[in-house]
Simulated assay, not measured.
Amino acid sequence: MHQEKDQPRRRQARGERRIAQPLEAAASVFCTTGYTAASTHAIAREAGVSPGTLYQFFPNKEAIAVELGGRLMHEMQETYGEALAPGDPATPLEQAVGTSVDRFIDFNCQHPVFFALMHGPDIPGRVAEQHDALHTALVTRIENLLRSFMPEAPQAAITRVARMGLGMYTAGLELVLAHEGAERDAYVQELKNALVRCLDPLVGAGLGLPEGLTTTPTP
């Protein structure tokens, strides 16, 4: 009886391993050539299988990208929960920023295809939709984190700061991923420094707008 129950599980595990192989190969090809220049033949060659075997799992390159992107975004969402939980206002800003940045940098360094696929100029349509939804969710999580440090700030100001901070992080991430070793570590530190310098006067003042300026509604 136990043997009969275990057989479907073993088949499922084997199937998962067979799917994981071309996905890992696709990640390597997408990082090397970009999505547009990649081909199913190149992915099959990287996976060490025939194109026919690849087509048993995925009908085309877009289907591979969608499956790979979906898995990465699911994993990234779990990272959000750990990195962007509402903070303790007593936590130093530098520590809060450093902890969040370290988690996201670690994820992107472990999965460089995430940046290559999600931020490339030729991102597939369905992946773009998933990424837009993920971006919106990330802005919301950053807003929640900021609100714990800026409880009196208007929502429009918090949203604007969250978007600006995310934009700075994304730009810095590209430089981080372009380097390795000690130079990468230096860029990570520069990114943290830039975010802290941006946020510190805002958090310290609750909003931090220069005298004479007012908040503008977020469209």
Score class of each variant (00 low, 15 high):
E180L: 10
Y169E: 13
M118H: 06
I142S: 02
R11V: 08
H2W: 08
L145W: 15
P121H: 10
A178Q: 06
E16M: 07
F57K: 06
G70K: 01
L72I: 09
G98I: 00
Y35D: 06
T170P: 02
L72E: 03
H131D: 07
L72P: 02
P8D: 10
V196P: 13
R45W: 02
H41G: 06
T215I: 14
E211P: 03
R18S: 06
R11L: 14
M1L: 08
M73N: 04
E82H: 10
M76Y: 10
G52R: 12
R103E: 07
G98M: 07
E180P: 07
P124T: 04
R45F: 06
T36I: 03
I142K: 00
L93T: 05
G181I: 08
M164D: 11
A157K: 02
A194L: 11
S50P: 14
A162L: 09
E4A: 13
A13G: 04
R71H: 05
R103F: 09
L166I: 12
M150Y: 05
S28L: 11
H111I: 02
Q155D: 15
T36R: 14
L93D: 08
A44H: 10
R126E: 12
L202E: 01
Y35N: 05
L84A: 04
G125C: 01
A186V: 09
V161S: 15
G52D: 07
L213I: 05
A83I: 00
A116C: 09
L54M: 03
G15A: 14
I123L: 11
L199M: 10
T136S: 13
